[in-house]
Design a protein around this nucleic acid. Structure first.
Length: 419
RNA sequence: GGGAGGAUUCCCGAGCGGCCAAAGGGGGCAGACUGUAAAUCUGUUGUCUAUGACUACGAUGGUUCGAAUCCAUCUCCUCCCA
């Protein structure tokens, strides 16, 4: 692997850099030679959402530039819960849940960062070093360096504090994450932590803790090198909302939670103004190319953006399939070959299936009441024809090639295959 | 420890014995217009075997023909005093 001394320029250019503990010094250090850096991800669910992806992109760029990356899955920290930016305490997860999530996230993450070949990423679970750390020792080693006044002033706690419910458990989160950095510094010589801007408080806590601990015991650190924190901006839509939020929660990376089709659709349907950001941050399209295509053809730009992001997350094969499906569905002579589909037993057709039942069963619509409403408002199409009557039944006569095409609104398609 | 206020549907927030599945706003969904965009306008927004039934106003129990509304206990939050 070729070492690239100017990776930071590239990151700055594409908009990945938000805050840094010392940008000039970091730049100088990165130019000198490879370093070890880390990114922490808390397994609060058994998948990653697009928000995680931002930092993972930075991870990839750094790794490609020849730096050694460590991905820390917060098996221990997830049991505590990060209060940063939260107005409610996170629901406590059972240890089993956390363990399950750790495994899932590990598997997913290793698809996006290279863990083999030359300069592989290291994936660790911070439960490894917290599991057997006695409370008293931890408090004496680490807790001693934290001033509660300073902590309370931090943005990270502002919301929780305002809501009045900040617990001691949550206060402990910052100590844990700060210690992660120390541990990695000592064990792996890690000198840079990257993360989202919401992690700024936790990241500087880590670099400060390092300085304080080294001051007490100069031999404790693996090196005398300075350590750095670097954050990427929060990914917001032009309305100022967090990108990747959908009505059913987050936009997930795991295809059993958000299908590649829905994933693509989400990005295709973002506001025009957000397209540029997404192209810069989540694709490798050169900046000049982005500028040109945005100017010439916003729709082509969106197609490219949605395709590239889908490819990045789900792979080329899936992305191509989605594009085929989209072409078929949204063009004049609909071709349903690659449409999202579900299967229903063909035997059910003999008596006819009520359209309402079918809509609810196939999960195209969440409830029968809503399905009724939708039909009454003229939002449901069966094989391209508006369904006028809520009593409409689907029978064998409606099938062509063994399926029917349901459409909810303008852009929700579902192929129902009977077999 | 003492006192005062509060918890309502996805979110904010009105309601303060029947007219309440609950005003208003936000968000969501659908219709029109468009470009599968934005803006705008309209409708809709608990569930179901559907002009009715069931479940819901922090939890539990009670008063009443009838409770989101009154009472008791509990949980959590906010503010003031210590």
């Amino acid at each position: 692997m070729e070492f690239n001394p100017n990776v930071l320029d590239l990151l700055k250019e594409r908009g990945y850099v938000y805050q840094c503990t010392n940008l000039d010094a970091l730049e100088a250090r990165l130019q000198k030679g490879p370093i070890t850096f880390y990114l922490g991800v808390d397994p609060t669910a058994d998948s990653l959402h697009i928000g995680h992806f931002f930092a993972l992109m930075v991870f990839r760029y750094l790794q490609e530039a020849g730096h050694r990356g460590i991905l820390v899955i917060g098996g221990a920290t997830a049991q505590v819960g990060d209060p940063s930016g939260k107005s409610d305490m996170r629901k406590m997860m059972t240890k089993e849940q956390v363990r399950h999530n750790v495994d899932e996230v590990k598997t997913l993450a290793s698809k996006f960062i290279r863990t083999d070949g030359d300069n592989p990423a290291i994936i660790l679970d911070n439960d490894e070093w917290f599991r057997d750390y006695p409370y008293i020792d931890f408090m004496r080693d680490v807790g001693i360096h934290f001033n509660v006044n300073v902590m309370l002033a931090a943005d990270a706690y502002a919301n929780r504090l305002k809501q009045g419910g900040l617990t001691f458990l949550e206060m402990g989160y910052m100590l844990m994450q700060a210690y992660d950095f120390i541990y990695l510094n000592r064990t792996y010589g890690c000198t840079l932590e990257i993360g989202g801007s919401d992690q700024w408080g936790n990241i500087i806590a880590g670099s400060e803790l390092n300085r304080k601990m080294r001051h007490i015991d100069p031999d404790a650190s693996a090196s005398d090198e300075d350590i750095f924190g670097l954050t990427n901006p929060l990914l917001l839509t032009k309305e100022g909302k967090k990108m990747g939020k959908t009505e059913n929660g987050a936009l997930w990376v795991a295809s059993d939670r958000t299908t590649p089709y829905d994933f693509y659709q989400y990005f295709y349907n973002v506001a025009d103004e957000d397209c540029e950001n997404l192209l810069r941050l989540f694709t490798r399209v050169p900046l000049e190319e982005i500028a040109r295509i945005l100017k010439d053809d916003i729709l082509a730009a969106k197609r490219l953006m949605a395709y590239e992001i889908t490819k990045l997350v789900h792979g080329k094969e899936e992305a191509d399939k989605v594009v085929e499906a989209v072409k078929g569905l949204f063009s004049a002579n609909a071709d349903a070959a690659n449409a999202p589909s579900v299967t229903v037993a063909a035997a059910r057709l003999s008596d006819g299936i009520g359209i309402i039942d079918l809509l609810a069963e196939t999960k195209l619509i969440a409830s029968k009441s809503e399905a009724r409403r939708m039909v009454q408002q003229g939002g449901i199409l069966l094989n391209g024809d508006k369904v006028e009557d809520i009593a409409r039944t689907v029978t064998a006569d409606d099938l062509k090639d063994g399926f029917v095409m349901l459409k909810k609104g303008k852009k929700n398609f579902l192929k129902v295959v009977f077999e």
